[in-house]
């Protein structure tokens, strides 16, 4: 029994280090354009770290299974009659429960609280979804269809609704999404952190993220993050253009 602990342990360590290094040095997450994105990304990375040793353990056993425990089988010999190990099972239960509780607290509850944030906002922007476009209503009552302009460094509340079927309001660069539900208003908050346009990052777009019919894939529009002053100028100009 004893002789497998060492190689499996070493493999476990090796894989864990490898996976953690991969998480640390390979940038798999896209650029962040909002405070909410930071919350989500932190939670994501934390889960990658916590998942690494778990993943590594099973990989280590599989690897050593192939190298160390392989046997011809034709000799029809049995392995040891090891049926249970109460201490091991209990330890396992304790560790996995602790891990589950840990994940629940952080990123679980912490992330939930942070992503929701305070129910206060500098601006309220209305978003009405319909097959297959978004109608934006800015704080001054002006509406627009082709582009969402949001101020940087300001907390914005989006009041999301739908006139026909389910849609989902999603800005990948901000990470957050909320469904647009016919008959039931929903809300989401974001605070953009930097100015930019969808030419800078394909993820600066509003993308429908709930199947809504033939035009679902194309139900997207660019997002432009501008300074607060520019934002106000922009929404005023919408009125003038009529």
């Amino acid at each position: 029994m004893r002789r497998s602990w060492l190689p499996v342990g070493l493999l476990w360590l090796g894989y864990t280090v490898l996976l953690i290094a991969l998480t640390k040095y390979v940038a798999i997450l896209p650029a962040q354009w909002a405070e909410e994105a930071q919350v989500v990304d932190e939670a994501f990375i934390l889960l990658m770290y916590l998942g690494s040793p778990v993943m590594a353990l099973v990989l280590a056993v599989m690897t050593w299974g192939i190298i160390g425990w392989r046997s011809d089988g034709a000799d029809r010999e049995d392995g040891p009659n090891q049926q249970n190990n109460r201490v091991l099972v209990t330890t396992w239960l304790v560790i996995t429960s602790a891990l589950a509780i840990g994940v629940l607290i952080n990123p679980g509850f912490v992330g939930l609280a942070e992503i929701r944030g305070e129910p206060s906002s500098d601006y309220v922007i209305g978003i009405q979804a319909a097959q297959f476009f978004w109608e934006i209503t800015y704080p001054n009552g002006e509406t627009a269809l082709d582009e969402l302009v949001v101020p940087a460094e300001k907390r914005v509340r989006y009041d999301v609704s739908s006139v026909d079927v389910l849609h989902s309001f999603w800005i990948p660069a901000f990470r957050v999404k909320i469904d647009a539900v016919p008959g039931v208003p929903t809300q989401v908050y974001t605070t953009a952190t930097a100015e930019g346009t969808s030419d800078d990052d394909v993820n600066l777009r509003v993308q429908c993220a709930e199947l809504c019919g033939a035009g679902h894939a194309a139900m997207a529009m660019p997002v432009r993050v501008v300074s607060d002053a520019e934002f106000n100028e922009y929404i005023e100009s919408l009125g003038g253009s009529e």
Binding site: G65, W69, S71, G73, Q82, N85, W92, L93, G108
Partner: peptide
């Protein structure tokens, strides 16, 4: 969220059982 993450515990036991069963077995790779 709590209930969902709780499911990972019994699922983990299934993995434990697989690992424990393979452990120092005479693995016959058919």
């Amino acid at each position: 969220m709590i209930l969902t993450e709780a499911i990972s515990i019994p699922t983990g036991v299934i993995f434990l059982s697989i690992i424990g069963t393979l452990w120092q077995g005479k693995l016959w790779f058919r």
